[in-house]
Computed example of a mutant assay.
Amino acid sequence: MQTSAAAPTPAQIAHAFLPDRWHYHYARSKLASDPLYAGVLGALDGAAMPVLDLGCGIGLVAHYAQAHGRALDYRGVDNDAGKIAQAQAGAARVGLAGARFEVMDLARAFPAHRGSVLLLDVLQFLPAAAQAATLERIAACLGPGARLVMRTGLRDGSWRAGVTRAADLASHAIRWMRSAPGSLPTRRGLEARLGELGLEARFTPLWGRTPFNNWLVVAERR
């Protein structure tokens, strides 16, 4: 009887960031506790187009995808040069196929792209006007078969929303996030904005075992 290979462990995937112990432990902890990466991979199932990851950090999505047998045509951009340096070094250590990373400030430039777009834990760090403009630019990238895959906190009066806001403020205070958090969007407002852009979205809770009010939003052209 043939058995399938065991799934890679968070420690095995995080090994790409050694010898930097801080980023190794960060990656290992995130991969072990956060349902984001499996959620993103599931949301991209059946979408074979190139993927643009806005605010990619150290590139964990690309590492997780390759470790689980999905080598993406992937481009990650982030305004933090230190994170991009770690992403590039980690990709080189493990031969991350089809992935490239670059420094880009989305407040000043937006990459040319045609395909799917990831916007993960980024929207709430933009002011309301910038949120609307960013979603408009993303919508212009989405052709038939492409998807916007977004994770964001939602402002709904819940205790989880309060914890999410506090965590966003803390991540800026310790300089993990360069931008200060703006306002959490509401589900109704976000759904309406995506609808104005010709996109139909589905919302799924994605907080797993965390206390945050995180939602996975997957949008496609109607």
Rank of each mutant, 00 (worst) to 15 (best):
V51A: 12
A16W: 05
Q66K: 11
W22C: 03
H23L: 05
I58C: 02
L36W: 01
D78C: 10
H68A: 14
V40L: 10
D73K: 02
G39D: 00
L44M: 08
L54C: 12
G55P: 06
V51N: 10
V51E: 08
Y26F: 15
P50N: 11
H68V: 08
G76W: 00
G39L: 00
G69T: 12
L44K: 06
Y26S: 08
A65D: 11
L41F: 10
M49H: 10
V40E: 11
A48D: 14
S33L: 13
H63Y: 01
D73E: 14
Y74W: 10
A38Q: 07
L31M: 12
D78P: 04
H63V: 13
A48V: 14
Y74P: 08
S33R: 15
A16N: 03
R70P: 09
P19L: 03
L60G: 07
R28C: 11
D34R: 10
P35K: 02
Y37P: 02
G46F: 01
L72C: 11
A65G: 07
D45Q: 15
Y64F: 15
A16S: 09
W22F: 12
W22S: 06
D34F: 02
L52V: 08
G55H: 09
V77S: 15
L36E: 13
H68I: 08
G59E: 11
A62M: 11
L60T: 10
S29T: 10
A62P: 05
C56M: 07
D73F: 02
G76E: 04
N79K: 08
D73Q: 13
G42W: 02
Y37V: 04
S29F: 08
D53S: 15
H23K: 01
P19S: 07
A27L: 04
A62T: 06
V40A: 11
L72Q: 09
A62F: 00
A71P: 07
R21Y: 03
G76T: 00
V61G: 06
Q66N: 11
H63Q: 14
L72I: 04
V61W: 05
L31N: 09
L52I: 03
I58A: 04
S29L: 05
H63S: 14
G69M: 01
A14C: 05
A48M: 10
G76M: 07
P19W: 05
V40Y: 06
R75Q: 15
G55T: 11
I13P: 00
G69V: 03
W22Q: 05
A67V: 03
R21F: 03
K30V: 13
A38G: 15
D45T: 15
Y24C: 00
R28H: 01
L36S: 13
P50L: 13
H63C: 08
G57R: 11
A14Y: 09
M49F: 05
A62N: 12
A27P: 02
A71K: 09
I58L: 01
R21T: 04
M49V: 03
H68T: 09
P50Y: 10
A62S: 09
I13F: 02
G42N: 15
H68Y: 15
D78R: 14
Y26M: 15
H25T: 12
M49A: 15
R28S: 12
G59V: 02
A27Y: 09
A16K: 00
L52K: 08
I58G: 00
